[in-house]
């Protein structure tokens, strides 16, 4: 064996190589981009929570205040924002419900409920909850 070409190498002394992780590591693959988008939907969950709170306080201030709030919601920029928020929330719903059977193990007696059934149950709950909300909000 000749002289080592790497001057920093000590003979018979292991020298591991560790790769550096780029700061934007989550752009490296489609799966990671999907993951980081899923995580960032939480921003819109918080936004929806706060907007709900604002709507409640507007309702408390009377019909005129609510009218102004509606006009604000109708402005194109706000509509566009809320349409985007809706898409993000839907992405959150689909990713959340699809992963639910992986985290939940339900049992009936000795048998484990199949994952497909857990999934169907979650989507049914989503539809039922949405129908209930539609009934509550759209009642006259």
């Amino acid at each position: 064996m000749g002289e080592p070409l790497n001057p920093r190498y000590r003979l018979y002394h292991p020298k591991w190589h560790r790769t550096r992780i780029p700061i934007f590591w989550w752009l490296r693959s489609f799966a990671y981009i999907k993951f980081i988008s899923r995580e960032l939907t939480s921003l819109f969950v918080a936004y929806a929570g706060l907007l709900l709170l604002i709507e409640v306080s507007v309702l408390a201030r009377g019909e005129a205040a609510y009218g102004r709030f509606l006009a604000w919601l109708q402005s194109p920029a706000v509509l566009a924002l809320n349409a985007f928020v809706l898409l993000a929330l839907l992405f959150h719903t689909f990713t959340w419900l699809n992963l639910a059977p992986r985290a939940l193990v339900l049992r009936v007696g000795k048998r484990r409920v199949p994952d497909a059934l857990v999934l169907v149950a979650h989507y049914s709950a989503w539809i039922a909850a949405s129908a209930l909300l539609a009934w509550l909000i759209l009642r006259r």
Binding site: E39, R102, A103
Partner: peptide, 26 residues
């Protein structure tokens, strides 16, 4: 773990470690 889920995608034996971790959290 933040449930990236890639561990289960690449598992050659369909072990689903990501699912195992979430079940452990529950």
């Amino acid at each position: 773990c933040t449930f990236v889920g890639e561990c289960s995608v690449v598992c050659p034996k369909n072990v689903d470690p990501a699912g195992a971790i979430q079940r452990y959290k529950v």
